[in-house]
Design a protein around this nucleic acid. Structure first.
Length: 425
RNA sequence: GGAGGAAUACCCAAGUGGUUGAAGGGAUCGGUCUUGAAAACCGACAGGACGUGCAAGCGUCGCAAGGGUUCGAAUCCCUUUUCCUCCGCCA
Protein backbone atom coordinates (compact mmCIF):
# COMPACT_ATOMS: atom_id res chain seq x y z
CA UNK A 1 0.00 0.00 0.00
CA UNK A 2 1.20 3.48 -0.77
CA UNK A 3 1.42 6.09 1.94
CA UNK A 4 -1.78 8.14 1.81
CA UNK A 5 -0.01 11.26 2.89
CA UNK A 6 2.64 10.79 0.24
CA UNK A 7 0.02 10.28 -2.46
CA UNK A 8 -1.84 13.39 -1.35
CA UNK A 9 1.25 15.57 -1.25
CA UNK A 10 2.98 14.20 -4.36
CA UNK A 11 0.01 13.43 -6.48
CA UNK A 12 1.50 14.32 -9.86
CA UNK A 13 4.64 12.30 -9.23
CA UNK A 14 2.64 9.30 -8.02
CA UNK A 15 0.49 9.27 -11.11
CA UNK A 16 3.45 9.67 -13.37
CA UNK A 17 5.36 6.81 -11.80
CA UNK A 18 2.30 4.57 -11.78
CA UNK A 19 1.75 5.33 -15.44
CA UNK A 20 5.03 3.51 -16.16
CA UNK A 21 3.08 0.36 -15.40
CA UNK A 22 0.45 -0.88 -17.75
CA UNK A 23 -2.96 0.18 -16.58
CA UNK A 24 -5.37 3.03 -16.11
CA UNK A 25 -4.91 5.05 -12.95
CA UNK A 26 -7.37 7.85 -13.62
CA UNK A 27 -9.51 6.51 -10.77
CA UNK A 28 -6.92 7.99 -8.42
CA UNK A 29 -8.32 11.46 -8.99
CA UNK A 30 -11.23 10.35 -6.87
CA UNK A 31 -8.83 9.65 -4.02
CA UNK A 32 -7.96 13.32 -3.66
CA UNK A 33 -11.60 14.30 -3.36
CA UNK A 34 -12.42 11.58 -0.86
CA UNK A 35 -9.34 12.33 1.19
CA UNK A 36 -10.19 16.01 1.37
CA UNK A 37 -13.73 15.33 2.51
CA UNK A 38 -12.44 12.86 5.02
CA UNK A 39 -10.13 15.35 6.64
CA UNK A 40 -12.82 18.03 6.73
CA UNK A 41 -15.16 15.67 8.53
CA UNK A 42 -12.50 14.61 11.00
CA UNK A 43 -11.95 18.20 12.01
CA UNK A 44 -15.65 18.75 12.62
CA UNK A 45 -16.46 15.48 14.34
CA UNK A 46 -13.46 15.59 16.61
CA UNK A 47 -14.36 19.02 17.80
CA UNK A 48 -17.84 17.79 18.64
CA UNK A 49 -16.44 14.81 20.47
CA UNK A 50 -14.06 16.99 22.43
CA UNK A 51 -16.99 19.09 23.57
CA UNK A 52 -19.01 16.04 24.42
CA UNK A 53 -16.17 14.58 26.46
CA UNK A 54 -15.86 17.83 28.38
CA UNK A 55 -19.58 17.90 29.16
CA UNK A 56 -19.59 14.26 30.24
CA UNK A 57 -16.80 15.03 32.61
CA UNK A 58 -18.81 17.92 33.96
CA UNK A 59 -21.79 15.64 34.52
CA UNK A 60 -19.63 13.37 36.59
CA UNK A 61 -18.58 16.27 38.73
CA UNK A 62 -22.14 17.61 39.05
CA UNK A 63 -23.45 14.20 40.09
CA UNK A 64 -20.88 13.89 42.79
CA UNK A 65 -21.93 17.30 44.06
CA UNK A 66 -25.64 16.40 43.70
CA UNK A 67 -26.29 19.23 41.26
CA UNK A 68 -28.96 19.16 38.56
CA UNK A 69 -27.54 17.85 35.26
CA UNK A 70 -30.51 18.35 32.91
CA UNK A 71 -29.17 21.53 31.28
CA UNK A 72 -25.98 19.72 30.40
CA UNK A 73 -27.89 16.73 29.01
CA UNK A 74 -29.97 18.94 26.75
CA UNK A 75 -26.91 20.56 25.30
CA UNK A 76 -25.57 17.14 24.43
CA UNK A 77 -28.59 15.82 22.50
CA UNK A 78 -28.05 18.13 19.56
CA UNK A 79 -24.45 17.08 19.08
CA UNK A 80 -25.25 13.40 19.19
CA UNK A 81 -27.11 13.01 15.89
CA UNK A 82 -24.55 15.09 14.07
CA UNK A 83 -21.72 12.94 15.42
CA UNK A 84 -23.49 9.79 14.38
CA UNK A 85 -24.03 11.07 10.84
CA UNK A 86 -20.47 12.25 10.49
CA UNK A 87 -19.02 9.04 11.91
CA UNK A 88 -20.99 6.98 9.42
CA UNK A 89 -19.89 9.14 6.52
CA UNK A 90 -16.31 8.93 7.76
CA UNK A 91 -16.43 5.17 7.92
CA UNK A 92 -17.74 4.97 4.35
CA UNK A 93 -15.08 7.36 3.12
CA UNK A 94 -12.30 5.46 4.83
CA UNK A 95 -13.53 2.19 3.42
CA UNK A 96 -13.67 3.63 -0.06
CA UNK A 97 -10.20 5.13 0.25
CA UNK A 98 -8.80 1.90 1.63
CA UNK A 99 -10.21 -0.01 -1.31
CA UNK A 100 -8.57 2.40 -3.72
CA UNK A 101 -5.25 2.09 -1.92
CA UNK A 102 -5.42 -1.71 -1.76
CA UNK A 103 -6.03 -1.85 -5.49
CA UNK A 104 -3.23 0.53 -6.38
CA UNK A 105 0.09 -1.17 -7.17
CA UNK A 106 3.48 -0.16 -5.86
CA UNK A 107 5.48 2.63 -7.46
CA UNK A 108 8.27 1.28 -9.65
CA UNK A 109 11.65 2.26 -8.29
CA UNK A 110 13.00 5.32 -10.09
CA UNK A 111 15.87 3.37 -11.65
CA UNK A 112 13.73 0.58 -13.09
CA UNK A 113 14.00 0.48 -16.90
CA UNK A 114 11.02 1.79 -18.81
CA UNK A 115 9.04 -0.55 -20.96
CA UNK A 116 5.68 -2.17 -21.41
CA UNK A 117 6.36 -5.90 -21.73
CA UNK A 118 8.93 -8.60 -21.12
CA UNK A 119 10.48 -7.53 -24.45
CA UNK A 120 11.81 -4.47 -22.65
CA UNK A 121 13.42 -6.32 -19.76
CA UNK A 122 17.16 -5.78 -19.47
CA UNK A 123 19.62 -8.64 -19.29
CA UNK A 124 22.02 -8.02 -16.41
CA UNK A 125 24.36 -11.01 -16.62
CA UNK A 126 24.77 -14.57 -17.84
CA UNK A 127 26.35 -17.54 -16.19
CA UNK A 128 27.43 -20.53 -18.25
CA UNK A 129 26.58 -21.24 -21.85
CA UNK A 130 23.41 -22.84 -23.23
CA UNK A 131 23.96 -26.58 -23.12
CA UNK A 132 25.23 -28.09 -26.37
CA UNK A 133 24.23 -31.57 -27.41
CA UNK A 134 25.77 -33.99 -29.90
CA UNK A 135 22.30 -35.46 -30.37
CA UNK A 136 18.78 -34.10 -30.45
CA UNK A 137 17.78 -33.41 -26.83
CA UNK A 138 14.36 -34.46 -25.63
CA UNK A 139 11.95 -32.37 -23.61
CA UNK A 140 11.63 -33.32 -19.95
CA UNK A 141 8.09 -34.65 -20.40
CA UNK A 142 9.38 -37.26 -22.84
CA UNK A 143 12.33 -38.17 -20.66
CA UNK A 144 10.07 -38.36 -17.61
CA UNK A 145 7.78 -40.77 -19.38
CA UNK A 146 10.53 -43.02 -20.72
CA UNK A 147 12.31 -43.18 -17.37
CA UNK A 148 8.99 -43.46 -15.49
CA UNK A 149 9.63 -40.40 -13.36
CA UNK A 150 6.27 -38.66 -13.69
CA UNK A 151 2.71 -39.87 -14.29
CA UNK A 152 0.59 -37.11 -15.81
CA UNK A 153 -2.34 -39.28 -16.87
CA UNK A 154 -3.16 -40.69 -13.50
CA UNK A 155 -2.71 -37.26 -11.94
CA UNK A 156 -5.41 -36.13 -14.36
CA UNK A 157 -7.63 -38.92 -13.17
CA UNK A 158 -6.99 -38.30 -9.51
CA UNK A 159 -7.26 -34.54 -9.67
CA UNK A 160 -7.28 -32.86 -13.08
CA UNK A 161 -5.11 -31.14 -15.63
CA UNK A 162 -1.94 -29.34 -14.61
CA UNK A 163 -1.20 -31.82 -11.83
CA UNK A 164 1.56 -34.40 -11.77
CA UNK A 165 2.60 -37.45 -9.83
CA UNK A 166 6.34 -37.71 -9.33
CA UNK A 167 7.42 -41.35 -9.18
CA UNK A 168 10.39 -43.41 -8.14
CA UNK A 169 13.65 -41.57 -8.78
CA UNK A 170 11.62 -38.63 -10.10
CA UNK A 171 10.05 -38.23 -6.68
CA UNK A 172 13.39 -38.72 -5.02
CA UNK A 173 15.00 -36.07 -7.22
CA UNK A 174 12.31 -33.54 -6.31
CA UNK A 175 12.78 -34.35 -2.62
CA UNK A 176 16.56 -34.14 -2.97
CA UNK A 177 16.32 -30.72 -4.57
CA UNK A 178 14.15 -29.36 -1.78
CA UNK A 179 16.54 -30.57 0.90
CA UNK A 180 19.59 -29.44 -1.03
CA UNK A 181 18.26 -25.91 -1.51
CA UNK A 182 17.26 -25.56 2.13
CA UNK A 183 20.64 -26.86 3.25
CA UNK A 184 22.52 -24.38 1.08
CA UNK A 185 20.45 -21.41 2.23
CA UNK A 186 20.51 -22.28 5.91
CA UNK A 187 24.11 -23.47 6.11
CA UNK A 188 25.85 -21.22 3.58
CA UNK A 189 23.67 -18.12 3.24
CA UNK A 190 22.45 -17.57 6.79
CA UNK A 191 18.72 -18.04 6.31
CA UNK A 192 16.54 -19.37 9.10
CA UNK A 193 14.26 -22.19 8.03
CA UNK A 194 10.50 -22.21 8.42
CA UNK A 195 7.93 -24.81 7.50
CA UNK A 196 4.76 -22.72 7.52
CA UNK A 197 1.06 -23.50 7.04
CA UNK A 198 0.03 -23.84 3.40
CA UNK A 199 -3.39 -22.44 4.22
CA UNK A 200 -3.55 -18.76 5.09
CA UNK A 201 -6.32 -16.33 5.89
CA UNK A 202 -7.59 -13.32 4.00
CA UNK A 203 -5.59 -10.83 6.05
CA UNK A 204 -2.35 -12.57 5.15
CA UNK A 205 -3.23 -12.64 1.46
CA UNK A 206 -4.04 -8.94 1.66
CA UNK A 207 -0.83 -8.20 3.54
CA UNK A 208 1.42 -9.38 0.73
CA UNK A 209 -0.80 -8.04 -2.07
CA UNK A 210 -2.49 -11.12 -3.53
CA UNK A 211 -5.84 -9.73 -2.38
CA UNK A 212 -8.16 -8.05 -3.03
CA UNK A 213 -7.23 -7.63 -6.69
CA UNK A 214 -6.14 -11.15 -7.64
CA UNK A 215 -8.64 -13.34 -5.84
CA UNK A 216 -9.37 -15.36 -8.98
CA UNK A 217 -5.71 -16.42 -9.08
CA UNK A 218 -5.95 -18.11 -5.71
CA UNK A 219 -7.42 -21.41 -4.58
CA UNK A 220 -10.04 -20.77 -1.96
CA UNK A 221 -11.23 -23.36 0.51
CA UNK A 222 -14.79 -24.37 -0.17
CA UNK A 223 -15.90 -24.64 3.44
CA UNK A 224 -14.14 -21.56 4.72
CA UNK A 225 -14.17 -18.53 2.44
CA UNK A 226 -11.60 -16.88 4.67
CA UNK A 227 -8.94 -19.51 3.89
CA UNK A 228 -6.70 -19.79 0.84
CA UNK A 229 -4.06 -22.23 -0.35
CA UNK A 230 -0.75 -20.41 -0.48
CA UNK A 231 0.37 -19.34 -3.97
CA UNK A 232 3.89 -19.00 -2.54
CA UNK A 233 5.59 -19.26 0.85
CA UNK A 234 6.06 -15.50 0.59
CA UNK A 235 2.56 -15.14 2.03
CA UNK A 236 2.92 -17.02 5.33
CA UNK A 237 6.57 -16.09 5.84
CA UNK A 238 6.19 -12.34 5.20
CA UNK A 239 3.07 -12.24 7.35
CA UNK A 240 5.03 -13.89 10.15
CA UNK A 241 5.68 -10.38 11.48
CA UNK A 242 2.32 -8.82 10.58
CA UNK A 243 1.29 -6.16 13.11
CA UNK A 244 4.62 -6.32 14.88
CA UNK A 245 7.37 -3.86 15.65
CA UNK A 246 10.83 -5.36 15.21
CA UNK A 247 14.06 -4.40 16.87
CA UNK A 248 16.20 -2.53 14.33
CA UNK A 249 19.32 -4.28 15.57
CA UNK A 250 17.90 -7.61 14.42
CA UNK A 251 17.60 -6.46 10.80
CA UNK A 252 18.07 -7.71 8.22
CA UNK A 253 16.19 -10.91 9.03
CA UNK A 254 16.37 -13.76 6.52
CA UNK A 255 13.99 -16.69 6.32
CA UNK A 256 13.76 -19.54 3.87
CA UNK A 257 10.84 -21.89 3.57
CA UNK A 258 9.74 -24.80 1.50
CA UNK A 259 6.05 -25.10 0.65
CA UNK A 260 3.97 -26.51 -2.11
CA UNK A 261 2.42 -23.61 -4.03
CA UNK A 262 -1.07 -23.49 -5.50
CA UNK A 263 -2.12 -21.32 -8.40
CA UNK A 264 -5.32 -21.22 -10.37
CA UNK A 265 -3.49 -20.07 -13.53
CA UNK A 266 -6.75 -18.48 -14.55
CA UNK A 267 -5.43 -16.55 -17.53
CA UNK A 268 -2.89 -19.11 -18.67
CA UNK A 269 -5.04 -21.48 -20.69
CA UNK A 270 -2.97 -22.98 -23.47
CA UNK A 271 0.37 -21.79 -22.10
CA UNK A 272 3.06 -24.29 -21.14
CA UNK A 273 0.62 -27.14 -21.40
CA UNK A 274 3.26 -29.86 -21.65
CA UNK A 275 5.45 -30.98 -18.80
CA UNK A 276 5.75 -29.54 -15.34
CA UNK A 277 6.56 -25.95 -16.15
CA UNK A 278 3.11 -24.60 -15.29
CA UNK A 279 1.20 -26.64 -12.71
CA UNK A 280 -1.62 -25.85 -10.31
CA UNK A 281 0.56 -27.31 -7.58
CA UNK A 282 4.32 -27.07 -7.48
CA UNK A 283 7.09 -27.04 -4.93
CA UNK A 284 9.17 -24.00 -4.17
CA UNK A 285 11.83 -22.94 -1.72
CA UNK A 286 11.34 -19.27 -0.97
CA UNK A 287 13.73 -16.66 0.42
CA UNK A 288 12.33 -13.75 2.43
CA UNK A 289 14.13 -10.78 3.96
CA UNK A 290 13.06 -7.96 6.26
CA UNK A 291 15.42 -5.00 6.01
CA UNK A 292 15.95 -1.38 6.91
CA UNK A 293 15.08 0.97 4.03
CA UNK A 294 18.66 2.07 3.45
CA UNK A 295 19.95 -1.49 3.16
CA UNK A 296 17.13 -3.12 1.23
CA UNK A 297 18.66 -2.73 -2.22
CA UNK A 298 21.90 -4.32 -1.06
CA UNK A 299 19.73 -7.09 0.35
CA UNK A 300 18.06 -7.53 -3.03
CA UNK A 301 21.46 -8.02 -4.68
CA UNK A 302 22.43 -10.52 -2.00
CA UNK A 303 19.15 -12.40 -2.17
CA UNK A 304 19.44 -12.67 -5.94
CA UNK A 305 23.02 -13.97 -5.62
CA UNK A 306 21.84 -16.51 -3.06
CA UNK A 307 19.24 -17.82 -5.48
CA UNK A 308 21.76 -17.86 -8.35
CA UNK A 309 24.18 -19.81 -6.20
CA UNK A 310 21.86 -22.81 -6.33
CA UNK A 311 22.04 -22.85 -10.12
CA UNK A 312 25.80 -22.44 -10.02
CA UNK A 313 26.18 -25.39 -7.65
CA UNK A 314 23.91 -27.41 -9.93
CA UNK A 315 25.91 -26.16 -12.91
CA UNK A 316 22.88 -25.03 -14.83
CA UNK A 317 23.31 -22.15 -17.28
CA UNK A 318 21.19 -19.11 -16.55
CA UNK A 319 20.83 -15.39 -16.98
CA UNK A 320 19.51 -12.59 -14.81
CA UNK A 321 17.16 -9.97 -16.23
CA UNK A 322 15.81 -6.84 -14.65
CA UNK A 323 12.10 -6.39 -15.23
CA UNK A 324 10.96 -3.18 -16.88
CA UNK A 325 8.29 -1.12 -15.14
CA UNK A 326 5.51 -2.52 -17.30
CA UNK A 327 6.40 -6.11 -16.43
CA UNK A 328 6.70 -5.59 -12.68
CA UNK A 329 4.49 -7.50 -10.29
CA UNK A 330 1.75 -5.61 -8.47
CA UNK A 331 3.58 -5.15 -5.15
CA UNK A 332 7.14 -4.91 -6.40
CA UNK A 333 9.31 -1.82 -6.76
CA UNK A 334 12.13 -3.68 -8.48
CA UNK A 335 12.49 -7.26 -9.66
CA UNK A 336 15.23 -9.48 -11.03
CA UNK A 337 14.12 -12.63 -12.78
CA UNK A 338 16.56 -15.51 -12.93
CA UNK A 339 16.04 -17.60 -16.04
CA UNK A 340 17.48 -21.06 -16.47
CA UNK A 341 18.39 -22.54 -19.83
CA UNK A 342 15.71 -24.98 -20.91
CA UNK A 343 16.59 -26.99 -24.06
CA UNK A 344 12.94 -27.90 -24.81
CA UNK A 345 12.11 -24.21 -25.05
CA UNK A 346 15.46 -23.44 -26.68
CA UNK A 347 15.37 -20.41 -24.43
CA UNK A 348 15.83 -19.16 -20.92
CA UNK A 349 12.81 -19.74 -18.68
CA UNK A 350 11.99 -18.00 -15.40
CA UNK A 351 13.02 -20.07 -12.41
CA UNK A 352 13.15 -17.34 -9.77
CA UNK A 353 11.80 -13.87 -9.27
CA UNK A 354 13.59 -11.70 -6.72
CA UNK A 355 11.88 -8.50 -5.63
CA UNK A 356 12.20 -5.57 -3.32
CA UNK A 357 8.76 -4.42 -2.23
CA UNK A 358 10.20 -1.53 -0.25
CA UNK A 359 7.57 -0.56 2.34
CA UNK A 360 4.57 -1.50 0.19
CA UNK A 361 3.87 -4.87 1.81
CA UNK A 362 5.05 -3.64 5.20
CA UNK A 363 2.43 -0.91 5.15
CA UNK A 364 -0.30 -3.36 4.17
CA UNK A 365 0.81 -5.89 6.75
CA UNK A 366 1.85 -3.25 9.29
CA UNK A 367 5.39 -4.53 9.85
CA UNK A 368 7.61 -1.94 11.48
CA UNK A 369 10.91 -1.60 13.30
CA UNK A 370 12.53 0.75 15.77
CA UNK A 371 16.06 2.02 15.22
CA UNK A 372 16.49 2.65 18.94
CA UNK A 373 14.40 1.64 21.97
CA UNK A 374 12.37 4.87 22.10
CA UNK A 375 12.50 5.78 18.44
CA UNK A 376 9.42 6.20 16.30
CA UNK A 377 8.52 3.00 14.47
CA UNK A 378 9.27 2.93 10.74
CA UNK A 379 8.07 0.48 8.12
CA UNK A 380 10.55 -2.23 7.20
CA UNK A 381 11.32 -3.12 3.63
CA UNK A 382 10.34 -6.64 2.59
CA UNK A 383 12.00 -8.73 -0.09
CA UNK A 384 11.60 -12.17 -1.45
CA UNK A 385 12.68 -14.47 -4.21
CA UNK A 386 12.40 -18.06 -5.23
CA UNK A 387 15.39 -20.03 -4.20
CA UNK A 388 14.27 -21.85 -6.39
CA UNK A 389 11.14 -23.12 -8.07
CA UNK A 390 11.78 -26.82 -7.55
CA UNK A 391 9.73 -28.25 -10.40
CA UNK A 392 11.38 -26.04 -12.96
CA UNK A 393 14.78 -26.90 -11.52
CA UNK A 394 13.85 -30.56 -11.85
CA UNK A 395 12.97 -30.01 -15.50
CA UNK A 396 16.17 -28.06 -16.10
CA UNK A 397 18.30 -30.84 -14.64
CA UNK A 398 16.54 -33.57 -16.55
CA UNK A 399 16.84 -31.69 -19.82
CA UNK A 400 20.32 -30.21 -19.45
CA UNK A 401 21.85 -33.37 -18.00
CA UNK A 402 20.31 -35.85 -20.41
CA UNK A 403 22.70 -38.26 -22.12
CA UNK A 404 22.57 -39.70 -25.59
CA UNK A 405 21.43 -43.06 -24.20
CA UNK A 406 18.41 -41.41 -22.60
CA UNK A 407 19.77 -41.47 -19.05
CA UNK A 408 20.14 -38.44 -16.77
CA UNK A 409 23.46 -37.60 -15.19
CA UNK A 410 22.89 -36.41 -11.64
CA UNK A 411 24.70 -33.15 -10.74
CA UNK A 412 27.56 -33.83 -8.35
CA UNK A 413 26.18 -31.75 -5.48
CA UNK A 414 22.93 -33.71 -5.57
CA UNK A 415 24.42 -37.19 -5.40
CA UNK A 416 24.69 -37.24 -1.60
CA UNK A 417 20.98 -36.47 -1.56
CA UNK A 418 20.28 -39.29 -4.04
CA UNK A 419 21.99 -42.03 -2.11
CA UNK A 420 25.17 -41.63 -4.15
CA UNK A 421 23.40 -42.35 -7.41
CA UNK A 422 25.21 -41.12 -10.52
CA UNK A 423 22.64 -41.70 -13.25
CA UNK A 424 18.93 -42.04 -13.56
CA UNK A 425 18.27 -44.65 -16.21
C1' G B 1 -17.75 -31.26 18.19
C1' G B 2 -19.72 -30.41 23.67
C1' A B 3 -19.07 -27.80 28.64
C1' G B 4 -16.52 -24.20 31.36
C1' G B 5 -12.63 -20.28 32.11
C1' A B 6 -9.40 -16.38 30.44
C1' A B 7 -7.41 -12.02 27.41
C1' U B 8 -5.13 -4.89 30.88
C1' A B 9 1.94 -2.27 29.41
C1' C B 10 8.36 -6.14 28.16
C1' C B 11 6.57 -9.59 32.47
C1' C B 12 3.30 -10.29 36.89
C1' A B 13 -0.96 -7.81 38.30
C1' A B 14 -5.14 -4.18 40.68
C1' G B 15 -9.44 -2.55 38.68
C1' U B 16 -17.59 -4.37 37.84
C1' G B 17 -20.18 2.48 34.96
C1' G B 18 -17.79 8.97 36.47
C1' U B 19 -10.39 12.78 39.15
C1' U B 20 -8.35 5.10 35.98
C1' G B 21 -6.75 10.89 30.72
C1' A B 22 -5.35 2.91 33.95
C1' A B 23 -2.79 1.43 40.91
C1' G B 24 1.23 -1.69 42.63
C1' G B 25 5.50 -4.86 41.77
C1' G B 26 9.43 -6.82 38.63
C1' A B 27 12.43 -5.85 34.38
C1' U B 28 14.61 -1.79 31.64
C1' C B 29 16.73 3.19 31.17
C1' G B 30 18.81 7.78 33.65
C1' G B 31 20.75 9.67 38.30
C1' U B 32 22.66 9.75 43.66
C1' C B 33 26.01 6.86 46.49
C1' U B 34 30.64 3.73 45.35
C1' U B 35 37.65 2.85 43.52
C1' G B 36 34.20 -0.32 40.45
C1' A B 37 29.93 -3.28 41.03
C1' A B 38 25.81 -4.91 43.97
C1' A B 39 22.33 -3.06 47.36
C1' A B 40 19.64 1.17 48.78
C1' C B 41 17.45 5.68 47.38
C1' C B 42 15.54 9.32 43.56
C1' G B 43 13.53 9.85 38.67
C1' A B 44 11.63 8.04 33.84
C1' C B 45 8.81 4.14 31.99
C1' A B 46 0.83 2.44 28.17
C1' G B 47 1.68 2.27 22.94
C1' G B 48 0.56 3.96 18.42
C1' A B 49 -2.52 5.86 14.48
C1' C B 50 -5.05 9.94 12.63
C1' G B 51 -6.28 15.18 12.38
C1' U B 52 -4.66 20.24 13.19
C1' G B 53 -0.69 23.87 13.59
C1' C B 54 5.40 27.23 11.03
C1' A B 55 6.22 25.33 15.77
C1' A B 56 5.66 24.45 21.02
C1' G B 57 1.35 22.16 21.37
C1' C B 58 -3.78 20.75 21.12
C1' G B 59 -7.61 17.25 19.85
C1' U B 60 -9.81 12.34 18.46
C1' C B 61 -9.32 7.11 18.91
C1' G B 62 -6.96 3.51 22.24
C1' C B 63 -7.47 -1.99 28.35
C1' A B 64 -7.46 -9.02 22.36
C1' A B 65 -10.56 -7.28 17.60
C1' G B 66 -15.25 -5.31 15.80
C1' G B 67 -20.09 -3.54 16.93
C1' G B 68 -23.84 -1.82 20.65
C1' U B 69 -26.13 0.37 25.37
C1' U B 70 -25.18 5.08 28.17
C1' C B 71 -24.45 12.05 28.99
C1' G B 72 -20.13 8.84 30.39
C1' A B 73 -17.49 1.90 29.54
C1' A B 74 -11.35 -1.62 30.95
C1' U B 75 -15.91 -2.12 33.80
C1' C B 76 -22.75 -3.80 30.94
C1' C B 77 -24.60 -6.44 26.12
C1' C B 78 -23.60 -8.90 21.16
C1' U B 79 -20.15 -11.01 17.49
C1' U B 80 -15.25 -12.68 16.31
C1' U B 81 -10.23 -14.30 17.39
C1' U B 82 -6.62 -16.53 20.48
C1' C B 83 -5.23 -19.27 24.79
C1' C B 84 -6.32 -22.66 29.04
C1' U B 85 -9.19 -26.88 31.58
C1' C B 86 -12.45 -31.13 31.12
C1' C B 87 -15.21 -34.57 27.78
C1' G B 88 -15.63 -36.76 22.82
C1' C B 89 -12.96 -37.79 18.26
C1' C B 90 -8.38 -38.28 15.78
C1' A B 91 -2.77 -38.58 12.77
Amino acid sequence: MLDQKFVRENFAEVKERLSLRNGDFSYLDNFLKLDEERRKIIVEVEELKARKNAISKQIGIYKRENKDVTPLLEEMDLDDDRIKTLDERLRDLEEEIKLIMLNTPNLPNKNVPRGTSSEDNVEIRRWGEPTKFTFTPKPHWDLAETLDLIDFERAGKITGSRFAIYKKLGAKLERALITFMLDVHTQLHGYEEQLPPVIVNRDSMTGTGQLPKFEEEAFKLYNNQNYFLVPTAEVPVTNYYRNEILNGDDLPISFCAYTPCFRAEAGAAGRDTRGIIRQHQFNKVELVKFAKPEESYDCLEQLTRDAEHILQLLELPYRVVELCAGDLGFSSAKTYDIEVWLPSYNDYKEISSCSNFEDYQARRANIRFRRAPKAKPEFVHTLNGSGLAVGRTWAAIVENYQQEDGSILIPKVLRPYMGGLEYIR
